[in-house]
Computed example of a mutant assay.
Amino acid sequence: MKNVLLTGVTSKIGRAVIPVLLDNGFNVTGLCRHPEKYTDECDIEIIKHDLNDELKIDRDFEYIIHVASYVPYNFDNKDSFEKSFFENIRSINNLLRFSLKNNLQKIVFTSSVDVYGDSDNDYIEEDSNLNGISNYGISKIASEGLLNVYFHLYGIKSTIFRLSYVYGTGMGEDRFLKRVITDLKCMKEIELYNIDNVLNIINVKDVAFALVKALDGPCGIFNLSQNFTLGEYINSAKNVLMVPTIVNELKHSESVSRRYYSTKKLKSCFGWEPSISLSDGITQIVEDLK
């Protein structure tokens, strides 16, 4: 049985990954700052640890899945910038230093499509220019760079997934996609700009499946995303809830966003296809609200 060290076990991605790892026969050890927040049914070992500090565990791990990340709520705040940047960099650096002392086969890392930043292109592939303009996006670019350095210097392999917005079970109450569901349940009028805008989202379970598949899969960098229009999301939610919708589409001077992130490389290398439909993902959110 191979050992996996999983960071961010209390996050929505971490919680989704654990049962998939166990179902595939891995022995899972989780890291988090607040073990008391882990209340899931899956029985795994939890080690209390802050990834800003050097990691000292006297055992070997074949794999590390690193999903823990500091995501600032205020992207314009200087303190938030520094906390996001330095915490995320320290975390991956401490994990990489720890990996030098282990018989590690691979690190699987969750990056973000924020690394692409502003772009004039609507079609984004993995070799598109990186133009991160947020503190979070810049920290992910730097983290990817560290993984690349450790591969060339020490041969530590990695698979990096650039995630779009992750939705489904475990979303925060203040998230837009969840607030839309709440308003629909209450049959409130919904005011939206440009319902033809493309939503680049990925379900948390599809993220979990991809992360686990990557452990014994190809190395490299891969976009992980699906695209729907805002109108498609609203219509699917209406059908799941079986309620009428009152949508007031407001005029907006900005053009419709049609950007989407290509998963052609992921499908070619992994044979990946999303397994969670939009309606199933919305059902997860509805279940969370009960």
Rank of each mutant, 00 (worst) to 15 (best):
I201W: 01
P218G: 08
V166C: 02
L184G: 01
E144D: 06
Y154T: 04
G170N: 06
F209E: 14
E249A: 04
T182V: 13
I195H: 08
S262L: 05
Y233T: 10
I156T: 02
G170V: 03
D196I: 07
G155K: 03
D183W: 09
R179K: 13
S143H: 00
Y261F: 09
S257E: 12
M187H: 13
M242G: 09
L184F: 06
E173Y: 15
Y150L: 02
E144A: 02
V212E: 05
N194S: 13
L224S: 07
V180T: 08
A208Y: 07
S143V: 03
L192K: 00
S262I: 03
D216F: 11
D196G: 14
D196C: 08
I234Y: 10
D174Y: 14
I234T: 05
G220K: 10
N239D: 13
L211V: 11
E191I: 09
L192H: 00
S262E: 10
N248M: 06
D174E: 13
K205G: 11
N194C: 06
M242H: 15
D196T: 07
S255E: 13
S253A: 14
V204Q: 01
K251D: 13
F228T: 00
G172H: 11
I160G: 08
F176V: 07
F209M: 13
R162C: 04
A208M: 11
H152G: 08
N235E: 14
D174C: 11
R175K: 12
T159F: 02
E249L: 03
V180N: 01
S257H: 15
K185L: 15
S236I: 10
R179D: 00
I234M: 14
V166K: 01
T263D: 09
L177R: 00
V212S: 02
K238V: 07
V247S: 05
V243L: 05
R179H: 01
G145R: 02
N203C: 05
E189Y: 09
M171W: 05
K213H: 15
M187P: 04
R179P: 00
Q226M: 15
M171K: 03
S225D: 08
P244L: 07
K205H: 11
L211Q: 06
V198Y: 09
C186R: 07
Y150W: 06
Y167M: 06
V256E: 08
I195W: 03
T159A: 08
A214I: 12
R259H: 09
G155Y: 05
N203I: 02
G220E: 05
